[in-house]
C-alpha cells in the first residue's frame, strides 16, 4: 500500500480515495498498453527480414522486390538510413543558431511588440499542419532554392563534392534539410528557452555586475546551459528524423547515396510512406519497412534518453 501514498499523505489511502484511485487506474494503464503494443508489433513484424538478411539489411543499398520467389528478394536500407542521418543533422545544425537568436530576442528584448510577434510566429510554426510545410516546400521553396542557391553554388564551386552534381528538379537532400530546419525551430526554441529560464537571477546579476556587454552576457548564459543546448540538438535531430509527409514531398524519393546535397534521396519515413501500401504483395518488403521503423524508434529513444539526462543536469544545477 505504501506505493500508493501521495504527496499529501504518507499513510495508506482512505477508502474513498482508493475508489478514486482504482477508477482512474485502468485509463492510466492504457498508455502502457499502447506503448507495449507498438513495440511488440514493430519488433515481431521486423523479425523476419532481420533474420533473413542479417546485418546486410542495414549496410547494403539494394531494393529488389520480387513476386517470383523468396530467393530473388534482396533488401538493404543503407540509402534511406544515410538520407535520414544527413537530412536530420543538417536540419538541426541549421536550426540551432536560428533558435539561439529567437531565444535571445524573446528573453532579453525590451521591445514587447517584437517579443510578441516572435513568440506568436513561433507558436504558429509549432502547430501548423506538416502537410502545409510540404506543399509550400514543393511548390514555393524548391523553385526558389534551385534558382537562387543550388545553381549559383554549383556553377561557382563544381569541384566541391557537396555541390558537384547538377541540381535537376530541386527536390533533394538540401531541400529536405532546410524544410526540416524550419519545422524544428519552434521545438528547439522552446527546449532552449526552458533551460534559459531556469538560470537563477543571481547568476545573471553576477554576469552583468562584472560589466559584461550584451554579447558577453549571452555567451556566458549559453555556456551555463550548454548541456541543455546539446540536448536540444539531439532532440531536434530525433524530431527531424521522424517527420514524414513534408520530407516525402521535397526529398525526391530515390535510392541514392551521394555526398552531393543537390541529389535526391530517401529517408526511412519517406520510404515507408511511398512503399508501405504495396508492401503486402511482395515477400519481406513489409518486414523490411518495419525494420526501418524499429531503427528509428531505437535511435530516437536513445537520443531522447541522453537529451533528458543532459537537461536534468542543467535543472539540478540551478534547481
Amino acid at each position: 500500500m505504501s506505493s500508493m501514498g501521495s504527496r499529501w499523505s504518507s499513510i495508506s489511502l482512505p477508502k474513498y480515495d482508493r475508489g478514486f484511485y482504482l477508477s482512474l487506474l485502468p485509463f492510466a494503464s492504457l498508455i502502457f498498453a499502447i506503448f507495449l503494443a507498438l513495440t511488440y508489433v514493430i519488433a515481431s513484424a521486423s523479425y523476419p527480414s532481420i533474420s533473413k538478411f542479417g546485418v546486410k539489411l542495414f549496410t547494403e543499398n539494394v531494393w529488389s522486390p520480387s513476386e517470383m520467389g523468396e530467393e530473388f528478394v534482396r533488401y538493404g536500407l543503407l540509402a534511406p538510413l544515410y538520407g535520414t542521418v544527413i537530412t536530420s543533422s543538417l536540419a538541426a545544425i541549421i536550426a540551432l543558431p536560428l533558435s539561439l537568436s529567437t531565444v535571445y530576442l524573446v528573453e532579453e528584448m525590451t521591445n514587447s511588440r517584437v517579443k510578441e510577434l516572435l513568440s506568436t510566429a513561433i507558436d504558429l510554426m509549432a502547430g501548423l499542419p506538416t502537410v502545409l510545410y510540404g506543399l509550400w516546400g514543393l511548390d514555393v521553396m524548391i523553385p526558389f532554392l534551385r534558382e537562387n542557391l543550388m545553381k549559383p553554388l554549383h556553377s561557382a564551386l563544381p569541384w566541391l563534392p557537396l555541390f558537384s552534381c547538377e541540381p535537376l528538379s530541386g527536390a533533394s537532400i538540401l531541400s529536405a534539410g532546410i524544410l526540416l530546419a524550419i519545422m524544428i525551430i519552434p521545438f528547439m526554441h522552446s527546449l532552449i528557452q526552458d533551460a534559459y529560464r531556469s538560470v537563477p537571477w543571481i547568476y545573471r546579476e553576477a554576469i552583468l555586475s562584472i560589466g559584461a556587454n550584451r554579447y558577453e552576457y549571452y555567451k556566458m548564459m549559453i555556456s551555463l546551459i550548454k548541456p541543455a543546448v546539446f540536448g536540444s540538438l539531439l532532440l531536434g535531430i530525433g524530431r527531424a528524423s521522424s517527420e514524414t509527409v513534408a520530407v516525402t514531398l521535397v526529398i525526391g524519393n530515390a535510392f541514392n547515396i551521394s555526398f552531393c546535397i543537390f541529389a535526391p534521396g530517401y529517408t526511412i519515413p519517406s520510404l515507408i510512406a511511398n512503399q508501405f501500401s504495396e508492401s503486402n504483395f511482395y515477400p519481406y518488403m513489409q518486414s523490411t519497412l518495419y525494420a526501418g521503423g524499429l531503427v528509428l524508434l531505437i535511435v530516437g529513444a536513445l537520443f531522447s534518453a541522453l537529451a533528458l539526462l543532459m537537461m536534468r543536469k542543467v535543472r539540478k544545477l540551478y534547481g
Binding site: F35, L38, I42, L235, L296
Partner: peptide, 20 residues
Amino acid sequence: GVRVLSKALLQIPSILVGML
C-alpha cells in the same frame, strides 16, 4: 510510467502509428 511514456510517445514517428 505515464509521465515518461507520454513524453516518449510524443517522440514516436507518426508514420509508425499508422503502420501499427
